[in-house]
Amino acid sequence: MKKLLLPLLVLVVLALSACGNNTNKNAGANSSTSDASSDTFTYQSETGPIAVPAHPKRVVALSGYAGNLLALDVPLAGVDSWTKGDPNFKDQLKDVPEVSEENVESILNVKPDLIIASTDIKNADKLKEIAPLVTYTYNKLDYLTQILEIGKAVNQEKKASDWIADFKERAQKSGEEIKAKIGADSTVSVIEGDSKSLYVFGDAWGRGTEVIYQAMGLKMPDQVKEMTAKAGYYDLSLEVLPDYMGDYVIYSKAPAADASFQQSSTYRNIPAVKNNRVFEVDANTFYFNDALSLDYQLDFITKSLLGSK
């Protein structure tokens, strides 16, 4: 009988040991799940704290924010039509689907783990059900702080900060070279539009304005400064256009625009036009103020003004 009890005791011990091992394994599995769930962090967004992926792999970028994510090497799963049509991003976005806030299913189909958009995005409540939604109010933050905030949202604050420091250094150097070439008191205007409507822009409305006025420190015509102070841009007519044209002009021009106004005597007699100091650029490449667009604008503006007569 004692001989029979010994093997039974051994079996009981082994069974208890196995249970213990299973318990440990289960505890490890729970810990791993916890780690997986902690593969998020809390981002203090404009609308409040939100849990976002620590390492996002499929981000949908709406409202023109894609260039910041591309600069930070964040994988994109979908972008808006404006971004998709930007020649600057043609190569990087050739395999990235175009999606729309109005077509929620198009966003659902690309299975994003994070969505970044503007605060006035449509169907926000539905988008929040698909993935964490981080939104920003346009121009609430200055253009460089906006880049830094997006860097924080995708856990790339250091990379964003380094990019900003490098950009500021490059832009300041270019600004100094340009002022030495054209004169510190020379003015620069940024215009956009066609024969039906023309606009001039202040210092924070895309189209290279942040680069010219903020980063480079070039001078804005007084009339432009006054009329754009409130809205950031000003709608004007051909008749008054000469009053808003600086010594040098960047014309953000849509390829299909009706630009017949350029044949008028009013336009042709503007000093910047007569002196070949109007530099035309594809408007599709100049709309945004994301990191990649800023790089392109800095390069274009520097080459145009340094190469001017």
Rank of each mutant, 00 (worst) to 15 (best):
K3L: 10
L6H: 09
L8E: 01
V10E: 03
V12S: 10
V13F: 02
S17T: 11
S17P: 01
A18T: 15
N22M: 11
N22I: 05
N24S: 06
G28R: 12
A29L: 12
N30K: 15
T33N: 15
T33H: 12
S34Y: 12
S38M: 02
T40I: 02
T40R: 10
S45D: 14
I50G: 03
A51Y: 07
V52L: 00
P53M: 12
K57T: 11
R58K: 08
V59S: 03
V59Q: 05
V60A: 01
V60M: 00
A61L: 02
A66L: 06
N68K: 06
N68H: 14
L70S: 04
A71V: 03
L72N: 12
L72S: 03
L72Q: 02
L76R: 00
A77N: 13
G78Y: 06
W82T: 06
G85M: 05
N88R: 13
K90R: 14
D91G: 02
L93H: 04
K94W: 01
D95V: 10
E98M: 15
E98R: 08
V99R: 13
V104F: 05
S106R: 13
I107M: 11
L108Y: 15
N109W: 02
I115S: 09
T119W: 00
T119V: 09
I121L: 05
D125S: 07
A131C: 04
L144G: 01
I147M: 05
G151Y: 07
K152L: 07
N155E: 03
N155K: 07
Q156G: 02
E157F: 09
K159D: 10
S161N: 11
D162Y: 06
D162G: 01
W163P: 02
I164R: 10
A165N: 10
E169D: 11
R170I: 00
G175R: 03
E176W: 08
K179F: 07
I182N: 00
G183Q: 10
G183D: 05
G183H: 09
D185H: 03
S186R: 13
V188A: 01
S195D: 00
V200H: 04
G202L: 08
G202E: 08
D203T: 06
W205V: 02
G206I: 03
I212P: 04
Y213R: 04
Q214H: 05
L218P: 01
M220N: 09
D222W: 08
Q223V: 15
T228G: 04
L236E: 08
E239A: 15
E239M: 09
E239K: 12
V240W: 08
L241S: 03
Y244D: 02
D247F: 04
Y248S: 03
I250L: 10
Y251D: 05
K253P: 00
A256Q: 15
A256S: 15
D258T: 11
A259D: 14
S260N: 04
F261D: 07
F261L: 11
Q262F: 00
Q263R: 11
Q263I: 02
S265A: 14
N269E: 14
I270P: 09
I270Q: 11
N275R: 12
R277I: 08
F279P: 01
V281I: 13
D282M: 08
N284T: 05
T285D: 08
D290P: 07
A291S: 13
L294P: 00
L298W: 06
I301S: 12
L306A: 06
